[in-house]
Write a protein that binds this DNA or RNA. Structure first.
Length: 851
RNA sequence: GGCGGCUUGGCGGAAUUGGUAGACGCGCUCGACUCAAAAUCGAGUUCUAACGAGUGUGGGUUCGAGUCCCACAGCCGCUACCA
């Protein structure tokens, strides 16, 4: 762009303001114990989801949420709040390690370089972060407290009586022995089938599997000894306490479905010719009379015992086939049920019938008991399976409408069910459960889909577990040894075996007393589970955060953070894990709120100009750096907020950036006129009272609307209003300085650089000393100034607009009627009709109903 | 399959609680300035020559529906054999 076309010299002043804010620590947030801390000021904690500092740098999606929170933070500051608005980096993670494998560079080096890039980019956008509170999850001081929190979890169990986590020392006091305690710790070791990727050299969480497979990595199922966190103990609380939060209903529902509570019963089936029973879980105990066969998961531990000799080969072949199937394969084969008969039979406790026991991969070992009673008449999957293998189908529910009973899964009336006959499903369920409990062969049971959290990884770039092994038992290392950092390695390449990579560091692993270090590391989620806590007291060396800081930054609501903005992709993982950790720390008395995030807002995805998801392969990616250098940080910020509602998905339009950039230039030219390449103060700017009633009204409407809209996070409409206000100033003969400054203040949170620059330049010309706009108070609007004496009254005939005219704001019905019937546009639509009714809404509508 | 979200001009989007549909911006058209262009400023811009019609489609409630109710369709996202 040539100099002549530059709308205003943003390239000069944007970096200058950023430097000034930084050197003066304009946005420093004093906390308890800090200089200038004022405990009487109300606090406001507004948080962004911190970025993973990838090599690609900031994406335009990042500044969307970040600008939104920045506007809210700056606004709250102007309304007298002590605002905590921090930023940091989620800097552990697999990509850094993959990069290290490729280049041989230590992940710490690439991570530091990436953080450097992110920091520069964030600073170039003028966000009002307190940079003294910046954190990175990879900092040793941060790792220390991540490990410390892990130890709190490790040293706790879930007390069923109080429904809370408690220290295991309570169990010791009760005389529990070491092994018993290890059984109940919230962090425990278990052999469990996990997703293992040989070429990544680590296990993956269920939810990570697809992502890495799509990048060409292989993933297989195998049982491994892993660290798990007992999040399932919190299932009910994680569901119930959602109700106390101000989150989008959709996200709450997503979490509820993920946790997946269902009510039903467990039922024990005696196995023919064996001494033991197999337990199933069902949500439909009322259909027990309709059970015609039983299905076990292929991995079910009883399978080898019950399989008959002539079925052995078939069963083992099937088990083998299943173990190599991935989730995806199972999904593809969804419609095509498969399974093998074990040769064994179970006895239906209600009628003594012999039920053939099958194994099939549509039954999952990880849910319920890994075994089901199959009721093909009233369960879709069982129905399909029964048809496929010609198993018998017996009706036990009569539909209440005329539907076919075959495959009817809804509620109805029990039939062919002995003592349940004639009962509606709900009552039949209850009666069956009572019967089972009475006979001690079953009981009421609540089942959750949520599984315990697989918490260990075999990679290098993560927090090592603060655990050592001695005589086959795990022990916490002492807190004084924290942080326990991973030793440097020369080679990060996966070995192809599930051995954690840290095993290679033999000197580090083997301790003098013969004990061994745990070589697994924590997943990336660990750091993001508590970063919002550390921001409150980031430099504390004695505690993860001080009690004073926690007390001050916490709220009187259940959730600590007042506003949390981020993408919807974290609806179930990060947001569930963080809630879990927070609750454990709350239970143990380290925190005073039960929830981390009171209000959550999901920003909508920004699509490419072509309306498609931005991606390198489509070539529709917009780089924020380019936008900043061409139009400036203020224009980028403003554009991202003007695009549409924050939560909506919306496409990028470079023409729109030009539009808001033009708007900022218009604001600039209200104050300055160009002459010989110099911007001189406009003669229209005058330090006089505003005599233009309309202009004054618009300014006060703007103060009111922008404030209200920021509270509602309706930034696009706030910007519209400021455009209207600017247009009014552009057209005014005289621009009263006070009112113009008010516009600058309300625009400042959106476009902080250009507003500060205008403000400072105007002051310089008139030789006045002014403080930073960022430190101004939000202006108050004058309700008097908002009043319009004349309003437009709309006249309708039968609900259709026929005429409109200006009328006094408090005109009564008589006056309105007189005016309405004086209009020929109105009366011509009344010809030949009788007036039935008149609806008069003062100040709005005068509707004549006639026919 | 299940769940959630969305659907308003050429485009992004406005519209408190049911009360003037299309604010604001983009684009486009015309005009001013200019030798000319850019930039800027001003006027216009839902469709239709007009009568009228109009917020995905069809119905309903109401004096009045983008907004409330019922049914349906199309896009997008998440999830997926959870017993």
């Amino acid at each position: 762009m040539s100099d002549a076309r530059k709308p205003f010299p943003f390239r000069e002043f944007e970096p200058q303001w950023q430097q000034r804010w930084e050197s003066e620590k304009t946005f420093r947030t004093p906390g308890p114990g800090d200089e200038n801390f004022d405990p009487t000021k109300p606090k406001f904690y507004v948080l962004d989801m911190f970025p993973y500092p990838s090599g690609a740098g900031l994406h335009v999606g990042h500044p969307e949420g970040y600008t939104a929170t920045d506007i809210v933070g700056r606004y709250k500051r102007m309304t007298g709040h002590n605002v905590l608005h921090p930023m940091g980096y989620d800097s552990f993670g697999l990509p850094a390690e993959q990069y290290a494998i490729k280049t041989g560079q230590h992940p710490a080096i690439t991570t530091a370089a990436n953080i450097e890039t992110f920091r520069r980019q964030l600073k170039s956008l003028g966000f009002a972060y307190d940079w003294d509170r910046e954190i990175a999850t990879t900092d040793p001081e941060y790792v220390r407290w991540t490990q410390w929190i892990f130890l709190q979890i490790y040293n706790s169990y879930f007390c069923e009586e109080t429904n809370k986590a408690q220290p295991v020392s309570k169990l010791e006091a009760k005389g529990w022995n070491r092994d018993q305690i290890d059984e109940v710790r919230l962090a425990f070791v278990a052999d469990t089938p996990v997703w293992w990727s040989p070429d990544l050299g680590t296990v993956l969480a269920n939810e990570e599997v697809e992502e890495w497979k799509s990048k060409g990595h292989t993933v297989e199922r195998r049982p491994l000894r892993q660290w798990m966190l007992r999040i399932t103990k919190y299932s009910q609380r994680l569901i119930d306490e959602l109700d106390t939060l101000d989150w989008p209903e959709g996200i709450k529902l997503l979490q509820k479905n993920w946790i997946g509570r269902s009510e039903g019963a467990s039922v024990k089936f005696q196995i023919s010719n064996f001494k033991f029973q197999i337990e199933v879980f069902t949500t439909r105990p009322d259909t027990l009379f309709g059970a015609t066969y039983m299905v076990l998961a292929p991995e079910h531990p009883f399978v080898p015992q019950i399989t008959t000799a002539d079925q052995k080969a078939a069963v083992e072949a099937y088990q083998k086939a299943c173990s190599s199937k991935s989730d995806m394969d199972r999904g593809d084969l969804n419609k095509d049920k498969s399974g093998v008969f074990t040769g064994a039979f179970a006895i239906n406790p209600v009628n003594g019938e012999q039920l053939p026991i099958w194994i099939a991969d549509y039954v999952m070992m990880g849910y319920g008991t890994g075994a089901i009673m199959a009721v093909p008449a009233h369960d879709e999957r069982d129905h399909e399976f029964a048809l496929r293998f010609s198993l018998s189908i017996k009706q036990v529910v009569q539909p209440n409408d005329n539907s076919d009973w075959q495959g009817y899964t809804a509620y109805g009336t029990a039939v062919n069910s002995g003592f349940l006959d004639g009962l509606p499903t709900a009552e039949a369920k209850a009666k069956m459960i009572d019967w089972l409990e009475e006979k001690s062969i079953g009981q009421r049971r609540i089942q959750f889909k949520l599984r315990d959290w697989l918490f260990s990884r075999q990679r290098y770039w993560g927090e090592p577990f603060p655990i050592i092994w001695k005589d086959g038992k795990h022990h916490a290392i002492s807190e004084s040894e924290l942080p326990l950092l991973a030793p440097p390695l020369d080679d990060y390449k996966p070995s192809g075996t599930p051995e954690p990579i840290l095993t290679k560091a033999t000197d580090w692993v083997h301790l003098p007393d013969g004990s061994l270090r745990e070589t697994n590391t924590m997943p990336q989620w660990a750091g993001s589970c508590w970063y919002y806590l550390r921001y409150c007291d980031p430099k504390n060396t004695g505690r993860f955060l001080s009690r004073e800081a926690e007390n001050y930054w916490t709220s009187d609501k259940p959730g600590m953070v007042d506003l949390y903005v981020g993408g919807t992709e974290h609806a179930v993982l990060h947001l569930l894990y963080a809630r879990f950790w927070h609750k454990v720390l709350f239970d143990l008395g380290h925190l005073t709120t039960p929830e981390p995030f009171q209000k959550l807002v999901n920003q909508g995805l920004i699509l490419g100009e072509d309306g498609q998801k931005m991606s390198k392969s489509r070539g529709n990616v917009v780089n924020p750096d380019d936008v900043v250098s061409e139009y400036g940080a203020d224009a980028l910020r403003l554009y991202e907020m003007f695009m549409g509602p924050l939560e909506q998905v919306k496409p990028w339009q470079m023409k729109g950036v030009e539009g808001v950039s033009r708007f900022l230039a218009r604001v600039w030219r209200v104050a300055f006129e160009e002459q010989d390449g110099q911007w001189n103060l406009s003669t229209k700017i005058q330090d006089v009272p505003c005599t233009d009633k309309t202009l004054l009204r618009i300014v006060h409407e703007t103060i009111k609307k922008v404030g209200e809209d920021i509270e509602k996070l309706s930034f696009n409409t706030a910007i519209s209003q400021m455009m209207i206000c600017t247009n009014a100033f552009t057209q005014a003969e005289v621009v009263p300085l006070k009112e113009f400054t008010q516009l600058l203040i309300v625009l400042n949170p959106f476009a902080p650089h250009v507003t500060e620059e205008i403000h400072a330049r105007v002051a310089a010309v008139s030789n006045r000393q002014v403080s930073l706009l960022s430190e101004s108070s939000w202006p108050t609007y004058d309700p008097e100034a908002l009043v319009r004496n004349e309003i437009e009254l709309v006249v309708q005939v039968n609900g259709k607009l026929r005429d409109r005219f200006m009328i006094s704001k408090d005109a009564d019905e008589e006056a309105a009627k007189a005016a309405a019937f004086a209009s020929s546009k109105v009366t011509e639509h009344l010809e030949g009709k009788t007036i039935r009714k008149i609806v008069f809404i003062p100040g709005k509508i005068f509707n004549i109903v006639a026919n």
